[in-house]
């Protein structure tokens, strides 16, 4: 708790959909294990565990990851124990800050069932819909493949979640149109963006290494553009995600319009505490606060 005492205060605090966050940093879904919680101290304003699904998923066969310049391509396949086991183990993620839960389903009904299951759980402050997974009823297109698709699932989940805040996590492709649809459908905030479709090939073996999503600093300028454009198109908060790896990155995303900022792949190669410290130093240097930065551009 030393970190919190040292870094806490008005300067770093933000408010997201009525939820007070002591810092604007949130772990991106699927990048913070239970085992790594001890390392993050109280750097994060909220905790967001790996996406949960209605039933257990074994995930994809290896190889699942491939390193690329300034990033990595992953294809994990949403490996998780299913929502019931997830909820049994949720207390382990209680670090004294709000818990956001990421959910994904194969169909709209599965999303709705998950939201219904989580709606009444007082441990969960908000739910993030992982809309980048394939909708099996729509030929495998993702739930955010277009505004109509995004609207359908968000409207249904909005009802199922009752008063709990709903975040819609959107991919980069078509992000502005999807963001507008998501807002109209009742999303309380938008997480922008997910990994970017990518491929790695082993030329010497003449095989595909990993066909999946690119993350890491390589995608930061893309994410920054998406956050900037979406922030101007909607009136709900934007949570930035995509290549955040320094305190300056956090500042840039907030200047572009983000209310909170997710840290994902960068946490594999450095301590999130360093990112928060850099951001805190930036605020001191600029004589400003986190909440004042949002949309200052």
């Amino acid at each position: 708790m030393v970190v919190r005492e040292r870094l806490a205060g008005e300067k770093l605090a933000v408010e997201l959909c009525g939820i007070a966050l002591e810092t604007p940093l949130i772990p991106a879904s699927g990048t913070l294990s239970k085992e790594a919680l001890g390392e993050v101290g109280s750097v994060y304003g909220a905790i967001l565990p790996k996406t949960t699904t209605p039933r257990a998923r074994a995930g994809n066969p290896p190889p699942r990851i491939a390193e690329t310049p300034a990033g990595m391509v992953n294809s994990i396949g949403l490996q998780n124990p299913g929502v019931e086991k997830f909820l049994e183990g949720l207390d382990a993620f209680d670090l004294g800050v709000p818990i956001f839960v990421s959910v994904a389903g194969d169909t709209v009904d599965e999303f709705v069932a998950l939201c219904g299951r989580l709606a009444g759980d007082p441990r969960i402050a908000a739910v993030e819909l992982n809309l980048s997974c394939p909708n099996v009823e729509h030929g495998g297109l993702t739930f955010c493949a277009g505004p109509a698709s995004a609207r359908e699932v968000i409207e249904a989940c909005r009802d199922a979640l009752s008063s709990k805040p709903l975040f819609a996590k959107l991919t980069n492709e078509g992000v502005v149109a999807n963001a507008i649809a998501a807002e109209e459908a009742g999303a309380d905030a938008l997480t922008v963006i997910n990994t970017i479709p990518a491929l790695t090939i082993d030329a010497s073996a003449q095989t595909i290494l990993v066909r999946g999503g690119l993350s890491g600093p390589a995608i930061k300028p893309v994410a920054l553009r998406a956050v900037y454009d979406v922030s101007r198109a909607v009136n709900i908060p934007v949570i930035a995600s995509g290549g955040v790896s320094t305190g300056t990155d956090v500042a840039e995303f907030m200047l572009a319009g983000a209310t909170a900022v997710q840290v994902g792949t960068a946490s594999f190669v450095r301590e999130p505490e360093e990112i928060l410290s850099e951001f805190s130093e930036y605020l001191d240097r600029m004589g400003t606060t986190a909440s004042e930065l949002t949309g200052a551009l």
Partner: peptide, 26 residues
């Protein structure tokens, strides 16, 4: 091959007899 080494990325899995995969780093 590993991404993070602390169980977070689920990249370094091996198949287990009971079904599914477990992380070689944890």
């Amino acid at each position: 091959r590993m991404g993070c080494g602390n169980g977070s990325c689920n990249g370094c899995v091996v198949p287990v007899r009971d079904g599914g995969y477990v992380r070689s780093c944890i």
